[in-house]
Design a protein around this nucleic acid. Structure first.
Lengths: 110, 110
DNA sequence: TATGGTACTTACATAAAAGTATGTAATACT
DNA sequence: AGTATTACATACTTTTATGTAAGTACCATA
């Protein structure tokens, strides 16, 4: 019996929310999109995020298998983040949320 | 100039997350789905939620225009909640999240 | 008079998430 | 020796979210 098989209660939505929940993760995934981005670029793309939260979430997303982290052995350091195959599966979720958000905004202006 | 028009920075994703963020809201919307549900039913359907959180979130979702609340003037009281038209627009988001969650679960069992 | 059912409300406590401020390593350039 | 660059790390504080426990109103029925 493998892990998870003993527990029939694994809810896909809950598992997903463990990964994409929180204030910054969707935005990070969204900003990276199909292209790799350096740490410094991310800071500029999401000015409101603190450095602490940015590396923390980059780390978490990497640990969850959503991001690839590629470090170049250079000084000053250079690190690139990109979406993994499964990480890219988050993009359609973001699209749906975006569509819903737009409808919300239109709705309330009437 | 109406509210919101002065601020060009309204991000649909952020607006959406204000509404569907948090631990319980998606689950509540999911449980109601296409059918109206009474408060007591919701408690049974989501046993892990506390009464406080349940009414609090039902109230919030109603205030956001996601839920309709219909109270019958009876004793003991009877209240039914159902998704509004725009509330139903959340269902496809949940579907996408569910699909992603399933992929996550499959992925990690290999 | 007491009990039960239903949909709440309130005060209080705890836990989780996020923010602030400061520090570090390694090397290149001045 | 001093400064800059880049990607972090760490301690600490504040804010936000969630949980616990108890109580309320209303009437019906036993």
């Amino acid at each position: 019996m493998e892990k998870d098989e003993k527990n029939i209660e694994v809810c896909p939505v809950k598992e997903a929310l463990k990964v994409i929940g929180g204030k910054w993760r969707l935005q990070i995934v969204h900003e990276i999109g199909e292209e790799k981005k350096r740490f410094g670029e991310m800071k500029r793309l999401i000015p409101a995020i603190s450095e602490k939260m940015l590396i923390q979430e980059l780390k978490n997303l990497t640990a969850y298998g959503i991001l690839n982290r590629k470090a170049y052995k250079e000084i000053p350091p250079k690190v690139e983040y990109s979406l993994t195959t499964i990480g890219k599966e988050i993009l359609p979720i973001i699209e749906q949320i975006e569509m819903f958000g737009s409808k919300l905004i239109n709705d309330e202006n009437q």
